[in-house]
Write a protein that binds this DNA or RNA. Structure first.
Lengths: 131, 131
DNA sequence: ATTGACTCTGACATTAATGTCACGGTCTAT
DNA sequence: ATAGACCGTGACATTAATGTCAGAGTCAAT
C-alpha cells in the first residue's frame, strides 16, 4: 500500500532527489519504516503533482509551504494565504515582462538598424570588418 | 592621465569588484604600474559604459567578449559577430516572454476564481478556513 | 617615518532547484 | 548467503555577476 521513494518518483515523474528536497523544505512528510526507508501513502502522488503545479507557476518551495497544507484539504479560495502570494507573484511577473519587453524593443531596433545599414551598403562591395 | 581602478569606478558607477571581473572575463585589459596597480586610459570610461550597455541588454560577458573589440572601433553593423548574438538573444527573450505570459494568464485566472468565489460567499458569514 | 586611503589577490557567499557521486545499509529472489 | 536493485545521508557542483572579507603591499601627505 505504501510507496517507496522510487515508486513515487516513477508515479509522478519527479526525481528522487527532488522528492527528498521537497521533504527538507517541509512540503511533504513521509512516514519511515523501521529501517529508515520513506513510506509515502498513495495520496502522495496527488500531493507531489500539486507541488509541481505550484512550482510551475513560479512559486518557491517556501511560498508553497505557506499554504500547501491548506489547499490539500480545501479549495484555494478557502485558504487565505494563497491570494496574497498569487498577487505578489503576478506583480513580479508583470515587472519581468515589462523589463523583457523593453529589452526586446531595444534589441529589435538594433537588429533592424544593422540590417538596414547592410542593405544600404549592399551595392558597394569590398567593405570589411572584424579588425 | 591614467586612471586608477577607484577613479574608473567613480567615473562609471561600476564597482571595483565588477571592473576586476570584466578584466578576468577578457572585456578590458588595463596596463599595470611597476607596483601592480591597474592603469586605465581615459577611453576606458566609454569602454566600461559600452560593456554595461550590453550587459543591460541581457548579454553575457562571454557574448560581449566575442564582439567588444570590434564594436569599440566600428559601428555595430560592421561587426559580423553582433547580429547572430542579437538574434539569438531576441529568440530567448521571446521564449521567456511567452513563458511568463502563459504563467501570468494561469495566475490571473486563479486570482479571479478566488475573488469570484469569495464574492459568491460574501452573504453567508461564519465560514472559516486555514485548517 | 607614520598614518590613512588606496590597491592587490584569493577566497567564500549569494539564489534555488536539481544533478551526481561516494559510501554504506536494506531488501529480495535465488 | 549472496548478488543486484533499492534506499539512506552528506557533500559538492551547477549559473553569473556581484558583494564582502582578510591579509598584505603602495602611495601621498605630514
Amino acid at each position: 500500500m505504501a510507496l517507496k521513494i522510487g515508486e513515487l518518483s516513477k508515479a509522478t515523474g519527479v526525481s528522487i532527489r527532488s522528492l527528498r528536497y521537497y521533504e527538507k523544505q517541509g512540503l511533504i512528510a513521509p512516514a519511515r519504516t523501521e529501517s529508515g526507508y520513506r513510506e509515502y501513502h498513495k495520496f502522495a502522488v496527488e500531493q507531489v503533482k500539486t507541488i509541481r503545479l505550484y512550482l510551475n507557476l513560479g512559486l518557491s518551495t517556501e511560498q508553497i509551504a505557506g499554504f500547501l497544507h491548506c489547499v490539500l484539504l480545501n479549495k484555494e479560495a478557502f485558504c487565505n494565504e494563497v491570494l496574497p502570494v498569487y498577487q505578489q507573484k503576478l506583480k513580479e511577473i508583470d515587472e519581468q515582462i515589462q523589463t523583457l519587453v523593453r529589452i526586446r524593443s531595444n534589441l529589435d531596433e538594433r537588429i533592424q538598424s544593422i540590417l538596414s545599414e547592410r542593405i544600404d551598403n549592399e551595392s558597394m562591395e569590398g567593405t570589411n570588418d572584424e579588425s
